[in-house]
Amino acid sequence: MAMFDYSAGAGLYPCKTVRRTSRLRYKRFDSVAEALRFAIEDMPVSMLRGSVLEVEEARYNGQQMRELYDADAYPLPRRGRQKKLSRFHNPGFLVPVGVGCATSSAYSHLR
């Protein structure tokens, strides 16, 4: 990737959601690095795809924002994404292999 100025000012246009329940609107940042940090680390993953980052008349889509954030030249420390889990996700519930499925011997009488 060519040299990129992460210190330039940037505007972030989050995508519009179908239900329009999101309160995220256009936001101006002092630097591209701060805008990328917000987009990648703080915005819901589902909103990144349709979002646009505008830097000095150039526009970057969600995939391009991700590439700029992942680049070695990115100047800020990465905090890591706080995953927005669905209400069906339960990380404390793990099922051992063969338990709880119709192929296990415990359920052989159901076949």
Rank of each mutant, 00 (worst) to 15 (best):
R78F: 06
T103Q: 07
V45F: 10
P14F: 04
S108Q: 00
P91T: 09
G62F: 03
M47W: 04
V45G: 06
L68G: 09
L24M: 14
G62Q: 09
D72C: 05
R37N: 12
S86K: 12
D42P: 02
R20L: 11
G92Q: 13
S46M: 10
R23A: 12
S86Q: 02
M47Q: 15
K84N: 15
A73I: 08
A39Y: 00
V55G: 12
I40E: 02
K27R: 12
P44V: 03
H89N: 13
V97F: 10
L24T: 07
E41K: 03
A2G: 09
F29S: 06
S46L: 07
R25D: 12
A10H: 04
G98V: 06
P96Q: 01
S51N: 10
S105V: 08
E56G: 12
S46R: 13
V18G: 01
P77V: 07
K16A: 15
M3V: 01
L76G: 05
G100E: 01
G80L: 01
C15K: 14
L68H: 07
L85E: 14
V52A: 12
M43P: 01
G92H: 10
V18I: 14
L48D: 01
G100L: 02
I40G: 00
R19V: 00
D70E: 08
S86N: 10
M43W: 10
R20D: 11
E34N: 07
C15R: 13
R37H: 13
R49C: 05
P75S: 03
C15M: 13
E57L: 07
K27F: 04
G50K: 08
A71S: 15
M47P: 03
Q64M: 06
